[in-house]
Write a protein that binds this DNA or RNA. Structure first.
Lengths: 130, 130
DNA sequence: CTGCATCCGCTACGATACTG
DNA sequence: CAGTATCGTAGCGGATGCAG
């Protein structure tokens, strides 16, 4: 097709970025990736480590991650069944930019919180009197 | 404060990262940030450029971004009213890691799609036939 | 131990209409 | 032109029970 290779990043490209960020943006996803970044983990190990996650969410999260080829699911057909999850090479490569964003988050966390506080304060009495 | 850079990334740190990624992960957010990265834009201009976004979502997105100090809202009290949105310094600093992640998305887009296809194919007849 | 299906509630999202 | 309020929908997310 007549591909109109754009000189810069198009909205279309941003769409794909949105898609990835939507997946990575799911709070549980990066927690799983971060945990798996420390080495392969079993299902219950992940559930135990990631406080607050439900079994359903963990299942859906790992399946989504596996579907995207970010993690590898290794099921051992034994009794009791053992399932290990590990980052793939693709997942590890994703870990880098994610960590970069993570460092930004940590570095500017205070600024963002302050901005929120300021915004909140300005909107508490916006249009109101004392 | 005692910045004793932690030995590794803790779960708690990841929580904050999740928070930021949750905001950035909202597909509309990065589109707005990307658009604003090209220069200040008016409300309708953003709505026109970002195809598919509703007025409600744009308002909410822009307000959330402003609340976090990522963008600056400049309202001109005239008839008709004119409101310009522009990236703050904080927003521009966020643009860097986001673009890094964006390049990852573009670079590995095909791989992810292939992984999805493979996963989908394997699960279409998983457990079926011999 | 792991995974899935169901029920149920909640919040996020989209379209419309109205105000300034 | 910019923004808000309301309504309706739909997908997300949590708890439970069951199956391999």
């Amino acid at each position: 097709m007549g591909v109109t290779d754009p000189p810069a990043h198009t909205i279309e490209s941003c769409m794909h970025v949105s898609d990835v960020l939507a997946r990575v943006g799911s709070k549980w996803s990066i927690l799983v990736i971060a945990k798996l970044g420390q080495g392969p983990q079993r299902f219950n190990a992940l559930k135990r480590e990631i406080t607050g996650i439900s079994q359903r969410m963990l299942t859906l999260t790992v399946r989504g991650l596996e579907r995207d080829g970010l993690i590898l699911r290794t099921a051992t057909p034994s009794i009791p069944p053992r399932v290990d999850y590990a980052l793939t090479d693709l997942g590890r490569s994703l870990l880098e930019p994610v960590q970069a964003l993570g460092e930004w988050a940590i570095a500017h966390r205070a600024v963002v919180e302050a901005a929120r506080h300021t915004f909140d304060a300005q909107h508490r009495d916006a249009g109101s009197h004392d």
